[in-house]
């Protein structure tokens, strides 16, 4: 994750074909999707897409303006990483010889990961958390030999205010 990323939380109508419209728009305009997660929301009429785009391929203002033109797109919120709670899930299958096994389980417990499957000479670890945590875990598992790895793509919501809203001076608009 070296390049600058933007996170868009996009509320869309829950109808068939909406994902195609969104994905097609990105392809057509030459915007690159880094990750994409789609799921239902609290309201069954809508779904939420969490789209991570790399800022270089995609001038974010154009992306949101073009997305807004799609009829089934209801609302777009751009989440600055600092203002968002981001979570991702990862499954990793690592080689686990008899000697390595305990080291991997130890690592997993540090990362609050779980061993979800155990094979003759491999383990599948599941870990959830902010994307950086998943990156770190990946690096540390690499020496054992990663056989397969699957990440879900991010979901994100805005961070909540910790304090009651402060009264701020209302800025007056002058000519």
């Amino acid at each position: 994750m070296s390049v600058q990323h933007h996170i868009l939380s996009v509320l869309v109508e829950n109808k068939f074909g909406v994902l195609t419209r969104v994905a097609g728009l990105f392809a057509r305009r030459g915007f690159n999707i880094y990750s994409l997660a789609v799921g239902p929301t609290e309201d069954e009429r809508f779904s939420r897409m969490t789209i991570v785009v790399d800022a270089e391929s995609a001038p974010i203002e154009q992306v949101t303006k073009q997305l807004n033109k799609l009829i089934p797109v209801i609302k777009i919120v751009e989440l600055a990483p600092a203002d968002a709670v981001e979570r991702e899930l990862m499954l990793v299958t690592v080689k686990a010889t008899a000697e390595a096994r305990s080291q991997i389980t130890e690592l997993a417990s540090i990362f609050e990961a779980k061993i979800d499957d155990v094979g003759y000479d491999a383990l599948t670890v599941v870990v959830a958390g902010p994307p950086e945590k998943l990156d770190a875990m990946t690096v540390l598992l690499q020496p054992f030999g990663i056989l397969e790895l699957q990440r879900t793509g991010r979901v994100a919501l805005p961070k909540l205010a910790r304090r009651p809203a402060k009264l701020r001076a209302v800025r007056t608009r002058t000519g």
């Binding site: 203002e61 154009q62 303006k65």
Partner: peptide, 8 residues
């Protein structure tokens, strides 16, 4: 009328 044209 199309906001996407402004600044495109």
């Amino acid at each position: 009328i199309d906001p996407a044209e402004l600044g495109k």
